[in-house]
Amino acid sequence: MTDIQKKRQSAMGVCARATAEEIAAALDRIGRPETANELRAPEAGLVMARARMGGNGAPFNVGEVSVTRAAVRLASGETGIAYQLGRDSKKARDAALLDALLQTGRAAEVEAALAPIRTRIQEDQNLKARRAAATKVDFFTMVRGED
């Protein structure tokens, strides 16, 4: 993967986990591009989620997840794409705009606007993990007194 692909992938992961309000705020912060063509109007669809037998074996189909996708093209020619869980079309379109902007000279602004969302997601995950960690047990077998 190229560097820009890695950056886009990482930003897409943030947008997918962000709320619609967070993405809209990020976009407003850097300024919505005035001219953007809707290459593909936001569309809800399905992706069949796969897992592996035994966690690491051959793949099988577990069930579908609902996904919304969108594609936009900026006046400067960059194409932005979004695929994310759920059925929020505005969120998908906003995420596609951010993906397009990330490929322009304004990439640093996009990264800066996504940074607080990234932090919020990380903090949520850490809190969940700390709460789970508090339920970690050490089962012990009772000594039978044979020694």
Partner: peptide
């Protein structure tokens, strides 16, 4: 409801070993 939606494709097989487990 699912019959009304288009199928975009199949996911990459999920890596359950990398699950952020709460249990």
């Amino acid at each position: 409801f699912r019959t009304t939606l288009p199928r975009f494709g199949y996911s990459v097989p999920a890596d359950t070993g990398a699950m952020r487990a709460v249990r």
